[in-house]
Amino acid sequence: MSSNAKAIKKSVHNPIRIDPDTCVKCNLCDWICPGDLIYKEEDNRETLPVIAYPDECWYCGLCQSICPVDAITVIFPDQMINCQTDVKTLLGKVIK
């Protein structure tokens, strides 16, 4: 990944917060995410799961619902919580 791409990645909203102190490194969130977004090293009780593709999150909460110790919180970005889009812009343009 170029450093530029890395910088962009950094600015992407992180959809889930994993509490490192609570997490028991069980891998369930990695196994369950329908988008293949969470990566957790198998058979390693030391490493934490990482959300590798944060901008591809569905905000479905499956990871949160499956986590045995409630270590995951889904956090909505401002674009969703304070959405200011004019709905009319979604309704098409008309070419004569």
Partner: peptide, 17 residues
């Protein structure tokens, strides 16, 4: 396949995958 209000491609009513 189309845009929505949040402008986020994977914020979708049905499964984006």
């Amino acid at each position: 396949i189309s845009l929505n209000a949040s402008g986020m491609a994977f914020d979708s009513w049905h499964c984006p995958y």
